[in-house]
Amino acid sequence: MSTVHDFQVKMTNGNEKSLDEYKGKVLLIVNTASKCGLTPQFEGLQSLYDKYKDQGLEILGFPCDQFNNQEFDNIEETTQFCQLNYGVTFPMFGKIDVNGANADPLFSHLKEQKKGVLSKNIKWNFTKFLVDRNGQVIERYAPTTEPGKIEDDITKLL
């Protein structure tokens, strides 16, 4: 059975990065958007990152434009927006699709491991997947779940 560590993802510069670099880390993988009503969640995500990164937490942000075109066209605009408005220092990756024929293979895997309430499709921006140190998907959280509400689950894995 494959784990999250078996996947390659595109960085903002277009280069590929292997997620096996995160072996031994607890991951929170999030599809993000810069112009969404839930965008202020970047603040809570950054807060979790600041608090737990030294204990082995990594937050991985994947900008997505599939829900009402709420992401900038240019990935540079996205990263600047996140840094300037929310102080984001956790890794952000290249823009992806999370549903449909062009869905990123990582997100297809995440959805397969933890389905949503009615289907496996991601319903909106800021769906979050918690992954243990071995690359196994432990939990899926709805877009409206505030990052602070995930803290207890994260600390159990750290």
Rank of each mutant, 00 (worst) to 15 (best):
L57Y: 03
I29F: 09
F107A: 07
Y52D: 01
D54H: 00
Q41S: 03
D97L: 15
C64L: 05
G37S: 03
E71F: 01
Y86V: 12
N74I: 02
G94E: 13
I96Q: 15
G100M: 08
L60M: 09
Y86L: 12
D20E: 03
A33N: 07
G37K: 00
N99P: 15
F72L: 02
S108G: 13
F93I: 13
E21Q: 06
F81T: 02
N99G: 13
Q80I: 15
L106N: 10
V30E: 05
Q70H: 03
G44Y: 06
N74Y: 06
T39A: 03
G44H: 11
F62Q: 12
D73C: 00
F62M: 11
K95V: 07
Q46K: 08
G87A: 12
Y52Q: 02
H109G: 08
F42K: 10
E77F: 03
K25Y: 00
Q83T: 14
L106H: 12
E71N: 02
H109W: 11
K111G: 10
N74G: 01
G56E: 00
P40V: 06
K111Q: 13
E76L: 09
E112N: 10
G94K: 11
Q83D: 14
F90D: 14
Y22E: 06
L19Q: 02
E21S: 03
E21R: 04
L19D: 02
D20R: 03
S47Y: 10
L28E: 03
F62G: 07
L45Y: 08
F81S: 04
K23S: 01
P105Y: 15
Q46F: 05
N69L: 14
L84Y: 12
K111W: 12
D104Y: 14
G61D: 10
D97K: 15
D65T: 04
V88P: 07
G100R: 10
T78M: 07
Y86Q: 11
K111P: 05
Y49L: 05
T89Q: 12
F90N: 12
N68C: 05
L28V: 04
Q66C: 05
F81D: 07
K35Q: 11
Y86E: 13
L60P: 01
Y52A: 05
D20G: 00
T32A: 12
L27T: 00
L38T: 02
G94R: 05
Q113R: 15
G24A: 04
C36V: 06
D97Y: 13
V88M: 06
K25L: 00
F107C: 10
K35I: 06
A33V: 02
Y22N: 03
T89S: 14
V98H: 11
N74T: 00
L110C: 00
N69E: 14
A103C: 09
C82V: 03
L38K: 07
F67M: 07
P105H: 15
A103Q: 05
N99D: 13
N99R: 09
G87Q: 10
V98T: 12
V98I: 13
